[in-house]
Amino acid sequence: MGNLGALDMYNIPRVCKECGGVMVFKGVGEYRCEDCGAVDYDDYGKVRGYIEEHKGATAAQIENAVGVSQRTVRRLLKDGRLEIAEGSNVYLRCELCGKEIRSGQYCPECEIKVHRNLEAKQRELMNKNARGFGFEQKGEEGQKRFRREE
């Protein structure tokens, strides 16, 4: 899923609740109306604001306080936008090796492996697709490759 798709999952305010104006992103999950200046927050902004004041809050507490579902809180953790507090007895698990992690999908070691594997596949695809230019193909020696039919 691309970044735009991920951002759409977090209930971004697009229309001002006060005047119907256009909401403009100001950073860290905050949006401000172009017309009346009203402020609203996407799910990330709501969750972040709450945990800044209530360190160590659980997903259930966050859901009850700001109305953002526990599922969305878990997605924010997996996307690496939030991190489980240090000293917490709750952890995520690396999707490859099962090691305890506080944020994201992979532990640092597996993250490196995943990126190296992706880079290798990308190089392989680029090398595979680069063939054809500058390489001689059977039966085409000295012939024009592109002919205009008239």
Rank of each mutant, 00 (worst) to 15 (best):
N11A: 14
G2R: 11
M1W: 07
C94R: 03
G5W: 00
G142Q: 05
R116G: 15
S88W: 05
E30P: 00
R147D: 09
V90W: 05
N129F: 10
E140K: 03
Y10D: 07
L76I: 11
E111M: 15
R32S: 05
M126Q: 13
R48H: 09
K128G: 00
V22G: 00
D35M: 12
E140Q: 11
R74E: 13
M126A: 15
M1G: 12
P13I: 06
D43W: 06
G49Q: 05
L125T: 08
R71L: 05
G142C: 04
G67R: 08
Y50D: 02
D43V: 06
R145H: 13
D43M: 04
A60T: 15
R93D: 01
L7F: 11
E124F: 14
C97S: 10
P13L: 03
E141P: 00
L82M: 06
V39N: 01
L92C: 07
T58S: 14
I84K: 03
L4P: 00
Q143I: 10
G98E: 14
R148F: 09
E63I: 01
A65N: 10
T72C: 05
R75D: 11
R93G: 00
K138T: 14
D35Q: 12
L125V: 10
G132L: 08
L96I: 14
L118H: 04
C19R: 06
L96Y: 10
A85K: 09
A130R: 13
M126Y: 06
V90N: 06
E95A: 08
V22L: 09
V114D: 05
C36A: 13
A6V: 11
G29R: 04
R75I: 14
C110F: 10
Y91S: 15
L92I: 12
D35T: 12
E111A: 15
Q105G: 06
L92S: 09
A60D: 12
L77Y: 02
F135M: 10
R147C: 09
A130W: 01
Y91R: 14
Q143C: 06
E18Y: 00
Y91Q: 10
C36P: 01
Y91L: 01
L92E: 07
E111V: 02
R102E: 09
R148Y: 07
L76Y: 09
Q61A: 15
A60N: 05
V24T: 05
I62D: 01
D8Y: 03
I62Y: 02
E109I: 10
G80P: 08
K128L: 07
E63F: 03
G98F: 12
G87Y: 07
T58P: 00
K128D: 04
K113F: 09
V90I: 13
D35V: 14
I112D: 11
E124N: 09
I62T: 06
S69R: 06
G21E: 01
S103I: 12
E34R: 13
A65K: 04
V73F: 14
M23W: 03
Q137P: 00
M23Y: 02
Q122H: 04
P13G: 02
Q105D: 13
G27H: 03
F146T: 12
D8N: 10
G134H: 05
C36Y: 08
L7M: 13
